[in-house]
Design a protein around this nucleic acid. Structure first.
Lengths: 195, 195
DNA sequence: CGTTTGATGTTACCAACGTCAACATTGTTG
DNA sequence: CAACAATGTTGACGTTGGTAACATCAAACG
């Protein structure tokens, strides 16, 4: 007994989008396919999102929130600061591997006019803040310290770079053992250099 | 006096594609628009590329060749090894900033079935080889050395990570001075840690 | 309790795109 | 010169993002 009004189409669409994103990649993620899967007319999504990009933005924003939450909880489960810092890097990579399509959406060029969505920027930045907070504790400096941001950026770059190479399948494996290279090891060396 | 046959449509298409990619971004890069700009029918490109993806692959492949060439020449102009290694990082970032859309095409999800184009993989890998060769000279180890590849991967990750953050406009600027963070500085520190 | 109104969903439609099949034109080669 | 392969054109199909006009419902208000 389908009622004319869906009830919470917006959330349903986002959930289905996540599903299709994970299953079939971003190419197959069309508003029409989404509407079809949810059992609603082709143009119904436009009552909840001004255009496709807005839907993707919402998806990415929630992705950043999830990422931040994952970084936070995994860092908090660590016995000490150094372990937490390493763990943040591993959690980041794990997120990218577990939700590859979403990760690429979050950082890739599928989103346009990001500047028009300040909430997206805030969500993204909050992930960096998570890392920055840990490094601040490690360095024991005020938040305005000049090198704090610099070190944060470099740590983030190292993590993001490794993530990129892993996702690109860029032979980031030990040619001898075939194992994926140890980001944890690199991060520990990075930490050992901090004052 | 337009002759029926274009002559070298393939090259013209690629050149025009580069142009439109730089000017209007990848969204506006359609086969039809390309054909229109070149003054040829909509389906003419299919005589030279089996599908759009193949055109993009060719574009990306030439992009990797250019990138490699740039890394090489700029490194060779350096007085010593350390300077060359830093320069490679800067050249990489410069390429990404100068040809942003192309760079995103090369590494982004616009390309599909990369595995079906071994030439693309070779081109991409040759860029890494450029970096690896320098690091090998620096370390003075045989090419099969276990840590050589590890260090190369980490250097590449650092460079790629910085590039990502720059392209994302990720506040990778000194909050005090407003200047972009110094990748060169990070690379010099990286180098100072090598044995 | 009936009406009005705003939110939500539907139908019909448009332009653009990637792609294919069938056909036209050309340069080359036997 | 004739046959052929390469190249370019025409026309069409199905899909997509998006708009406009209309339909339906629920809640606010008299």
């Amino acid at each position: 007994m389908a009622s004319y009004h869906h009830g919470n189409l917006r959330e349903t669409l986002l959930a289905q989008a996540r599903k299709q994103l994970a299953e079939d990649g971003i190419d197959k993620l069309s508003l029409r396919a989404l509407a079809r899967a949810v059992g609603v007319s082709q143009t119904a999504p436009y009552r909840h999102f001004p255009d496709k990009n807005a839907l993707l933005i919402a998806l990415a924003t929630s992705g950043f929130a999830e990422l931040r939450q994952s970084l936070k909880t995994r860092a908090e489960a660590c016995p000490d600061l150094d372990a937490a810092l390493v763990e943040v890097g591993l959690a980041y990579v794990d997120f990218a591997k577990a939700h590859t399509a979403l990760y690429k959406l979050m950082f890739g060029p599928a989103l346009t006019q990001k500047d028009s969505y300040p909430q997206l920027h805030v969500s993204a930045e909050s992930c960096l803040e998570e890392l920055k907070a840990l490094i601040q504790l490690k360095l024991n400096v005020p938040e305005s310290d000049e090198t704090l941001w610099y070190i944060t950026i470099n740590a983030a770059a190292l993590i993001k770079g490794h993530t990129s190479m892993i996702l690109e399948g860029n032979d980031n494996c030990n040619p001898a053992t075939g194992e994926e290279f140890d980001l944890a090891r690199a991060l520990r060396i990075f930490l050992s250099m901090l004052p």
